[in-house]
Amino acid sequence: TRVETATETAWISLVTALHLVLGLSAVLGLLLLRWQFPAHYRRLRHALW
């Protein structure tokens, strides 16, 4: 049971790290898009909202 718990903890930390990385890359990508294509971003936002 001790090994299982350790594996579970490792998986949880791995998944958390993955989610953090994905979230950060998504935010960075959005910022980059907004910085590179302001007109396109505004049009996209206008279409979405």
Results as ranks from 00 to 15, higher is better:
11 W>T: 01
12 I>K: 13
25 S>K: 04
12 I>F: 06
13 S>C: 15
44 L>A: 13
35 W>L: 15
12 I>M: 08
39 A>E: 15
33 L>S: 04
36 Q>D: 07
35 W>N: 15
13 S>L: 14
45 R>V: 07
16 T>H: 01
6 A>W: 04
29 G>F: 13
4 E>I: 14
4 E>F: 13
33 L>T: 02
16 T>G: 02
37 F>T: 05
45 R>T: 11
18 L>V: 05
49 W>V: 00
30 L>I: 11
40 H>E: 08
13 S>A: 15
13 S>D: 02
49 W>I: 09
18 L>G: 01
38 P>V: 10
1 T>R: 10
2 R>E: 12
4 E>Q: 13
23 G>C: 14
34 R>G: 06
17 A>R: 02
25 S>A: 14
7 T>A: 14
26 A>I: 10
49 W>S: 02
40 H>N: 11
45 R>G: 02
40 H>R: 08
22 L>A: 10
49 W>A: 15
47 A>Q: 08
22 L>P: 04
37 F>C: 07
30 L>G: 13
43 R>M: 09
29 G>H: 04
28 L>G: 00
13 S>V: 14
46 H>F: 07
2 R>D: 11
42 R>H: 10
15 V>Y: 00
10 A>Q: 08
42 R>S: 14
48 L>Q: 00
11 W>M: 06
6 A>G: 12
33 L>N: 07
3 V>H: 00
15 V>A: 09
32 L>T: 10
1 T>C: 11
26 A>D: 02
15 V>F: 01
4 E>S: 13
45 R>Y: 10
15 V>G: 02
10 A>C: 00
9 T>P: 15
32 L>Y: 04
9 T>C: 06
46 H>A: 05
31 L>C: 15
26 A>M: 11
22 L>Y: 00
49 W>C: 10
39 A>M: 12
24 L>G: 05
20 L>S: 05
10 A>T: 09
41 Y>D: 06
40 H>P: 15
11 W>L: 03
11 W>H: 06
47 A>I: 08
24 L>M: 13
45 R>W: 04
3 V>R: 01
19 H>I: 01
29 G>V: 14
34 R>H: 03
29 G>Y: 01
21 V>C: 13
33 L>Q: 05
10 A>V: 06
2 R>T: 12
32 L>N: 07
23 G>W: 07
15 V>M: 08
1 T>F: 12
16 T>R: 05
41 Y>Q: 03
3 V>Q: 02
21 V>M: 12
29 G>R: 02
30 L>K: 04
23 G>A: 14
4 E>V: 13
21 V>N: 01
15 V>Q: 07
35 W>K: 15
49 W>T: 09
35 W>I: 15
25 S>F: 05
11 W>Y: 13
47 A>N: 07
27 V>R: 03
15 V>D: 04
4 E>H: 13
23 G>M: 14
16 T>Y: 03
34 R>E: 04
46 H>N: 11
25 S>V: 10
15 V>I: 09
4 E>Y: 13
14 L>A: 02
17 A>W: 05
43 R>F: 07
20 L>E: 04
4 E>P: 06
13 S>Q: 10
18 L>M: 10
17 A>L: 11
43 R>Q: 09
32 L>H: 12
17 A>H: 04
40 H>A: 13
44 L>Y: 04
28 L>K: 06
20 L>H: 04
23 G>F: 13
37 F>G: 02
15 V>T: 11
37 F>K: 00
23 G>R: 02
49 W>N: 15
47 A>F: 11
28 L>V: 00
15 V>L: 07
45 R>C: 07
27 V>L: 11
14 L>E: 01
22 L>G: 07
41 Y>M: 11
32 L>F: 02
36 Q>V: 15
21 V>K: 03
3 V>W: 01
7 T>W: 12
4 E>K: 13
26 A>H: 04
25 S>T: 13
3 V>F: 06
14 L>P: 04
19 H>V: 03
14 L>S: 01
48 L>W: 07
27 V>N: 03
38 P>T: 06
8 E>A: 03
43 R>E: 08
11 W>E: 00
48 L>A: 07
23 G>Y: 06
46 H>L: 09
18 L>E: 01
